[in-house]
Write a protein that binds this DNA or RNA. Structure first.
Length: 156
DNA sequence: GCCAACGTTGGC
DNA sequence: GCCAACGTTGGC
């Protein structure tokens, strides 16, 4: 049985990993997420084939720059076991991994950036439940409804 | 580069 | 289990 396709938004700092980087490598293990809520979305919510809005944060024009697809089920983030990694977590172990990730596959680049400004301008239509535009929200992985997905991409 | 927001840590 | 201190995120 296949569950209904879900939608997500994932943030990345373009200096660290941009939509162009994803286009080059095609598939990227989404490592380094060290927030429990974000982890839970990946671990418990994501299914292969789900849609992802790729969002550039912490840059000149923050906004949605492309789409991607969930390409694997959740599995332990290997960087948590790597002492040399910035993402090393001494409290995690292969027997009891704390952090999970999914593989993210490039889908397409948008013809233009859907800037945060524009997204905010449509806050009413997107609804109060949209985590991205909620004040102070710093979640790097968040759910998007089918209606929000449609609305956001219609702005392209 | 600043700083508000907010999650996590650790002392008690 | 509380909560102050601290670190990080991310818009501006």
């Amino acid at each position: 049985m296949t569950a209904r396709k879900r939608y997500w938004l994932m943030k990345s700092e373009p200096d660290a990993f941009s939509i162009d980087d994803l286009q080059k490598v095609k598939v990227e293990p989404w490592n380094g997420v060290r927030n429990y809520q974000a982890r839970n979305f990946m671990r418990d919510g994501m299914q292969v084939g789900d849609g992802i809005l790729f969002y550039h944060s912490n840059c000149k024009v923050p906004g949605i720059v492309g789409t991607a697809t969930v390409a694997s089920k959740a599995y332990p983030d290997p960087t948590q076991f790597d002492r040399k990694s910035d993402y090393y977590d001494p409290k995690s172990s292969p027997q009891e991994p704390r952090w999970m990730l999914v593989d993210v596959a490039f889908d397409r680049k948008l013809s233009r950036t859907i800037a945060l400004d524009e997204i905010k301008a449509h806050a009413d239509a997107l609804g109060e439940g949209f985590a991205l535009t909620q004040r102070g929200n710093r979640l790097s992985v968040l759910p998007v409804t089918a209606a929000q997905w449609k609305l956001l991409l219609a702005l392209e």
